[in-house]
Nucleic acid binder design. Structure first.
Length: 647
RNA sequence: GCCGACGUAGCUCAAUCGGCCGAGCAACCGCCUUGUAAGUGGUAGGUUAUGGGUUCGAUUCCCAUCGUCGGCUCCA
């Protein structure tokens, strides 16, 4: 059952940071995962603006000081254990803090218990946090045995980067904080003394590897994650939320509900879908397909294999060849499994002959399974796979049509997200920033950016702008939706593309009789079927809305003499389009109900002597509600109403 | 890919110091014919992920490989 949370507005005010850092508490594992972008994006820079906005409040908060101080206390405890260890950085993060160390040996879970115990002792000492400001040379002197700190000091000294790697404009004041026997390079702020941390509201969570400064070419450090709150109750709530997230884990539910499996025989990141799992995929794809058809999108099919050469021309090869499966070579021709659709759609556009401006916009939609060679360490259930089915669409249009086409995409996305009960979402509108990475055509940019803004406003979509976050080929809008646990997922995306159509020679004849290059909008609604399925399994905790449930109704005969009647009922319901099963096992009714409920089947229809006599069924719902006996027609009316309503 | 942990029956887990690998659920075969979250008896199920090493003897210790998990702010 969905966890209740305060009713969230459909949209939220654009200038209010949307608690990307959420002191109210969401799970550590719940940090937003970026969706796959389609296309030639630059490696995403840190979202400075976004970060800045959400951290403003957080950094002032008591919780921030508590966590920051807890990180120092933890560092002290670790350094007592490893006097020769090297400290690096230890910032507060969403829901807690971490500290990275370079230690002579790997930490074990037993170490964690010891460190946590020592932290409590230090806290009990009520040691003052003392700030001291010093010159860069003094700092270097003080931290001479701590090479990572010296590196940080050098960075600060020449105004390079802060601990997050952001450029620093002004040379900052260098300061240290000391409590008890431990001194750390730190700009603060901290609590006044260690006694202000509640020893029962902290917990060390895990050890993990982390590269120094996130750079895989630099040393691998050991990171300890911890969580800290103001009160034990908050800690408990946080841990409860983690438990809840664990219960909803789509990998666990996928197995329990028998939806999909991974097999070593087939390979990592290549999910196998059971009949129920495939039914879900089918329903999801059919739904989006129908919506798209209704909005004037046309469906195309461009296969799975493409000559490598095409990706050299489109520019993908250069940027993404590592993420493609290795080529299949036939004589002199190399083929690749298709990792994205755009070049294929544009090629199709070209092959269809000359295009008049009167044909535009032309909207090509495709559910194609793409193959991407994701690094093994990054595979993760259905949310990160190597075979992914994108609900991809490319709209070829004139520059003047950008606004109306973008608007159309917005409407499709709004409708689909609504259907899946994602009502709490916002849009990040990524615009061009300073610097030379962007396609040089200021006029096009200005027009496109204005068109996007205008369409977002006209459609009453809440959005915020992130300048400098656009792809080099054009602005884009990403939909970030919160699930019932408050976790944010990037789902839909719309991207304007000024460049690839030109690279692949797409053109149309305008009313001036001249050839022009169309603009292309790339768009995904649910992103990929696999990932979206993973997300909605967790969003619904496996209890899918009736329209989407792979099995909508289980008929439960009480005794063997009711089986025949159930079979005929099932046939009747099936003929009307319901997905029905009869539980003919020789089990007790109670046991059948239990199993159906565990499988989250929306309707259980119990049939015994009474029902058989009166031509009825006794309805029970998966939430335990028991509407009781009713005529088959009444049940059908109810079921159809709920299916129609998207319940 | 890198760091760390883990891999025992379909699932969830157990097995002392290195000494014949065990239980619940599921499956299968019976009995019961059931009224809103587990009726009952029995049967079967394993080269302990794979390959190698140490040892009289390896689920247990060592090495490699594969896979999974947590991270590494990472992705068209």
């Amino acid at each position: 059952m969905p966890v209740s949370r305060p009713a969230a507005a459909v949209t939220c005010s654009g200038d209010i940071p949307h608690q990307g850092i959420n002191p109210g508490g969401t799970a550590k594992t719940l940090s937003p995962r970026n969706g796959r972008e389609f296309y030639l994006t630059q490696p995403p820079l840190r979202r400075r603006e976004e970060r800045g906005r959400m951290e403003e409040h957080y950094e002032q908060s008591k919780l921030y000081r508590i966590r920051h101080s807890a990180a120092h206390i933890m560092a002290q405890a670790v350094m007592e254990l490893f006097p020769d260890g090297k400290v690096t950085i230890g910032p507060p993060i969403e829901d807690g803090f971490y500290y990275d160390f370079d230690l002579p040996r790997a930490l074990t879970p037993e170490d964690l218990a010891g460190i946590e115990k020592r932290m409590r002792q230090i806290i009990a000492g009520r040691h003052q946090f003392v700030r001291r400001e010093l010159s860069a040379d003094e700092a270097r002197q003080f931290f001479q045995d701590q090479p990572y700190k010296v590196e940080l000091i050098d960075g600060l000294d020449k105004g390079g980067q802060d601990e997050y790697g952001n450029p620093i404009v002004e040379r900052p004041v260098i300061s240290t904080y000391t409590h008890d026997s431990f001194t750390d390079l730190c700009r603060g702020p901290h609590v006044e003394n260690t006694g202000q941390i509640n020893p029962s509201a902290i917990k060390l969570m895990s050890v993990a590897g982390a590269y120094w400064r996130g750079d895989e070419k630099r040393p691998m450090l050991q990171r300890i994650y911890g969580t800290a709150w103001e009160t034990p109750k908050e800690l408990e709530e946080y841990l409860w939320k983690l438990e809840e997230a664990k219960k909803r884990d789509h990998r666990k539910l996928g197995k329990e509900l028998g939806l999909f499996y991974f097999s070593e025989d087939v390979g990592p990141g290549l999910p196998l879908f059971t009949p129920k799992g495939e039914m879900l995929r089918h329903l999801m794809e059919t739904y989006v397909r129908d919506v798209q058809t209704r909005y004037g999108f046309q469906h195309v099919w461009t296969g799975n294999l493409v000559k490598e050469d095409l990706y050299k021309r489109s520019g993908h090869y250069e940027n993404y060849k590592d993420a493609m499966f290795p080529p299949m070579v036939d004589e002199n021709i190399a083929f690749r499994l298709k990792p994205m659709n755009c070049p294929s759609h544009m090629t199709l556009f070209n092959e269809m002959g000359r295009h008049s401006y009167r044909e535009l916009p032309l909207r090509f939609a495709e559910f194609a399974t793409l193959y991407r060679y994701e690094k093994t360490g990054e595979l993760n259930g259905l949310t990160r796979v190597r075979a992914l089915t994108q609900d991809d669409c490319h709209t070829f249009c004139t520059p003047e049509q950008i606004e109306s086409e973008f608007s159309l995409d917005l409407q499709v996305i709004k409708e689909v997200l609504q259907r899946y009960r994602f009502t709490d979402y916002r849009v990040r509108l990524s615009l061009r920033g300073e610097g030379g990475k962007y396609v040089q055509d200021p006029e096009k940019w200005d027009k496109a950016e204005a068109a996007l803004r205008s369409a977002l406003q006209a459609n009453h979509v809440d959005y915020y702008e992130a300048s400098g976050e656009a792809a080099f080929y054009g602005p884009k809008a990403d939909f970030m939706a919160r699930d019932v646990l408050g976790r944010e997922w990037q789902l839909s995306t719309i991207q304007v593309d000024f460049i690839q159509p030109a690279r692949l020679g797409c053109s149309y004849i305008s009313d001036d009789g001249m050839e022009h290059t169309p603009v292309v909008l790339h768009r995904a609604v649910t992103g990929t079927t696999e990932r979206f399925l993973g997300v909605i399994i967790e969003h619904f905790a496996g209890a899918f809305p009736v329209w989407l449930s792979p099995v909508q109704t289980v008929l439960i005969p009480i005794a063997d003499r009711h089986v025949e009647y159930c079979r005929s009922l099932a046939a009747r319901l099936k003929a009307l389009g319901l997905r029905v099963e009869v539980d003919e096992r020789g089990e007790r009714m109670n046991s059948k109900i239990r199993d159906a409920q565990k499988q989250k089947v929306p309707y259980m229809l119990v049939v015994g002597d009474q029902e058989m006599e009166n031509g009825q069924v006794a309805l029970r719902l998966r939430n335990g509600e028991n509407p009781g006996a009713m005529s088959v027609d009444d049940f059908l009316t109810r079921a159809n109403r709920e299916i129609e309503a998207g319940d």
